[in-house]
Design a protein around this nucleic acid. Structure first.
Lengths: 145, 145
DNA sequence: GGTGAATTGTTGGTATACAAACGGATTTTG
DNA sequence: CAAAATCCGTTTGTATACCAACAATTCACC
């Protein structure tokens, strides 16, 4: 009889029920928490610092790949961090196309100063869920990438 | 003994485990699906069209509020949609501060043409999860806003 | 009923994001 | 080895996003 209810027949399109819209609002809340706890850098800039600490110096494009930014975006981010003295860049002698990006001492120091607060950001963002839900949620979210 | 394992002592900070980072990558994938299925408008622009269909004409700021954009952002979005003839704007006579934003016929037509594909976007974005997981996921995500 | 407070929309500034096109360097492959 | 394909970084253009400051208008309250 009403077997159709499993299909998409639940009536009109409601923006507030679409993943994209909810995803955007969740990102907004996260950003707000982030800039409250770490006003020194943006989430993207912090991602660059964190990855360089994890992996060491990288070419600019490689850095973009592991931080999920395209070449044009990563350029702007690196430029701004270099201008603030948090990163250094150098030509690669073996492959003259490449620019090697690395942390400066100041950049490494800032990262370690800020990293504890970064943990709090994840914690506060996920605070509406209990521990078990948090794990489930993160696992599902990761599957959507 | 190891009761501390419930705390944050799980070792080093890993960027790939932070909500913010995963959220960003999930948004990227969603955007990619969106622009593939609906190249005519951006997600934000579509949100404006959808909300105007839902609620009818609104002041520019009110529109921003229900679509989760600040005043500066919504202005740009509305301007571009007006330029393309998808929206109309008019001064409010009762409150001379306000600009009334509404769909044009062309905007309404485009919305209805595109809306079925918008459902597919949500479907494809959530495709890695089964039906039950999708519901759980959306409910949890909504709690993070 | 008039003044301080709040709201509305605008502007300018900064920071992601992504697409497309480009020149130079390196790798692949025929 | 030489041509083709690929990779690297840059630039330009468009579109969110958010902040802060601003003028005009309306509201609240005394």
């Amino acid at each position: 009889m009403d077997k159709d209810s499993t299909r998409n027949e639940q009536g009109s399109y409601r923006l507030d029920r679409q993943v994209g819209f909810i995803l955007r609002r969740a990102s907004q809340r996260h950003l707000s928490i982030f800039s409250e706890l770490i006003p020194e850098v943006t989430p993207t800039q912090f991602a660059v610092l964190a990855k360089l600490v994890e992996t060491g110096a990288l070419s600019q494009n490689a850095l973009g790949r592991i931080t999920a930014m395209d070449a044009a975006t990563v350029k702007g981010v690196v430029d701004r961090l270099v201008k603030r003295g948090l990163l250094t860049t150098a030509r690669d002698d073996k492959d003259k196309r490449r620019t090697i990006v690395d942390l400066s001492d100041k950049g490494r120091a800032l990262y370690h100063e800020v990293e504890p607060r970064a943990r709090l950001i994840t914690e506060q963002t996920l605070a509406p869920l209990n521990r078990r839900e948090q794990e489930t949620f993160l696992a599902m979210l990761a599957r959507l990438c």
